[in-house]
Each structure stands twice: as C-alpha cells, then as structure tokens.
Lab assay of single mutants.
Amino acid sequence: EHQTACDSYWTSVHPEYWTKRHVWEWLQFCCDQYKLDTNCISFCNFNISGLQLCSMTQEEFVEAAGLCGEYLYFILQNIRTQG
C-alpha cells in the first residue's frame, strides 16, 4: 500500500515546522500557482528547514530567488499569519 502524500503535505504543517521537502514542495507550488520563473530560483539556496526559511529576511529571499524572491517572501508571510 502506498502512503497518501497529503498526510504530510506542506499545507497541513505550520511553516516553522516544515522539513526540507516541505520547503521544496511549497516552492514548486508557488511556481505553478503564481507562474513564477523557476530559472530565477536557486533551489540549492532553499535546501533548508522551515524554521530557517521563516527566519530569512526579504533581502535574503531576493538574494536566493532573484525577482521571485519578493513574491515568495510575501507569500510565506501570508501563510504564517493565517496559519
């Protein structure tokens, strides 16, 4: 039997508790949902936990993801305040 992915999907966990996999799933979702250019995102810069992600500043997001960084930063802040 296969496990259902939704059990541990990033949407069901507060961002501060995300694993590295959750972070990448979220990035992929943002790219799909908001039509962000994946080429401007250095995924290696996001090989981090949710706690590390949440402690990043807006400037660090821009450094890590170029033009997309600002969008990603605000998307994350939205999730954190709603969560």
Rank of each mutant, 00 (worst) to 15 (best):
G83Y: 08
W24P: 00
L51D: 12
T81D: 10
C54F: 01
C68M: 12
V62Q: 10
V23Y: 04
V13W: 01
Y17Q: 13
C68Q: 15
H22Y: 02
E1I: 15
G69K: 04
K20A: 08
C44Q: 15
D37A: 06
W26D: 00
C68F: 09
E16C: 08
L72Y: 00
Y17M: 15
F61C: 03
W24Q: 15
H22N: 15
D37K: 02
P15V: 02
Q3R: 09
G66Y: 00
W24A: 10
C6Y: 01
T38A: 11
C54L: 10
F43C: 07
E1C: 09
V23C: 01
S42R: 11
E70Q: 09
A64F: 03
Q33G: 02
E1L: 05
I79F: 10
L76I: 03
Q28D: 14
Y73N: 01
T19V: 00
F29C: 06
N45S: 13
T57S: 12
G83N: 10
A65Q: 03
E70G: 08
A5T: 12
N78C: 05
L27K: 02
W18S: 00
H14Y: 08
L72A: 02
L53I: 01
C30E: 00
Q77G: 07
Q3T: 11
S55W: 02
L51W: 08
C40Y: 08
C30T: 13
R80N: 05
I41R: 01
Y73C: 01
H14M: 09
L53N: 00
L51H: 14
E59T: 09
A64N: 13
L27V: 13
E1M: 04
D37S: 10
Q3C: 07
G69M: 00
I48G: 02
I48D: 00
K35E: 14
C54T: 04
A65D: 03
L36S: 00
H2Q: 10
N78Y: 02
C68D: 12
I41P: 00
P15S: 02
Y9N: 08
C30W: 04
E70Y: 07
Q77N: 10
P15N: 04
C68N: 13
Q58V: 12
Q58R: 13
G66T: 03
T19G: 04
E25V: 05
W24V: 14
Q33C: 10
M56S: 05
R21P: 07
Y73W: 11
N45T: 11
C40W: 04
S42G: 08
I75C: 14
G69F: 01
L72V: 01
H2L: 09
G83W: 12
F74Y: 12
E25S: 09
C54P: 03
G83F: 07
C31S: 04
W26V: 01
C31K: 06
Y73D: 03
Q28R: 11
L51M: 13
E16Y: 12
W24L: 14
C40H: 15
I79E: 07
C54E: 02
T38V: 12
T19E: 08
W24S: 15
A64W: 05
L72M: 05
F46Q: 04
C40G: 13
Q77K: 10
N47P: 05
A65G: 12
Y34S: 05
V13E: 05
A65N: 01
A5E: 13
E59H: 12
E25G: 08
T4A: 11
C44N: 14
I48Y: 04
Y71T: 15
R21Q: 15
E1Y: 11
C40R: 09
Q52G: 03
E16D: 06
E16M: 10
F43P: 10
Q3W: 06
K20Q: 07
A64K: 13
Y17C: 12
Q28M: 10
G69L: 02
Q28P: 09
G69D: 01
V23D: 01
M56V: 02
N45K: 14
Q28A: 06
S55A: 14
C30Q: 02
Q3A: 04
Y17W: 04
W10C: 04
G83M: 08
Y71K: 15
C68S: 14
F61V: 02
A65H: 05
G66E: 01
N39T: 09
K20M: 05
T11A: 10
N47L: 04
V23E: 03
K20R: 10
R80W: 02
I48V: 11
K35Q: 13
N47E: 12
E70F: 06
E59S: 10
P15F: 05
F74P: 10
N78Q: 13
H2F: 14
A5L: 12
L72I: 03
N45M: 12
C30K: 03
N39C: 06
F74S: 15
L72Q: 02
Q58D: 02
Y71P: 15
I48H: 08
Q52K: 09
L67Y: 15
V23A: 00
P15L: 02
E70T: 10
I41Y: 04
I41T: 04
S49L: 01
A65F: 15
E16N: 10
V23S: 00
Q33V: 07
H22W: 05
H2V: 07
L53F: 03
K20S: 10
T4F: 11
I75F: 09
C31V: 12
C30A: 09
R80P: 01
T38F: 08
N39H: 15
T19A: 06
K35A: 12
Q58C: 08
W24F: 15
E60F: 03
Q52S: 07
E25Q: 12
Q3D: 08
A5F: 09
Q82F: 09
R80Q: 08
F43G: 08
F46V: 01
Q3N: 15
H2D: 15
G83P: 12
I41M: 07
E70L: 05
I41L: 09
L72S: 03
W26I: 13
E70M: 07
E70A: 08
N39Q: 13
C44D: 15
Q82C: 12
D37C: 05
T19S: 10
V13S: 02
H14L: 09
C30I: 04
S42F: 04
E59N: 14
E25D: 06
I79C: 09
L76E: 01
Q28T: 12
F43E: 10
C40P: 06
Q3L: 11
Q33D: 11
L76N: 01
R21V: 11
N47A: 08
C54R: 01
K20D: 02
C44I: 13
Q82L: 06
E16F: 06
W18V: 00
W26F: 10
A5I: 10
N45H: 11
N47V: 02
H2E: 07
Y73A: 01
W18I: 11
I79P: 04
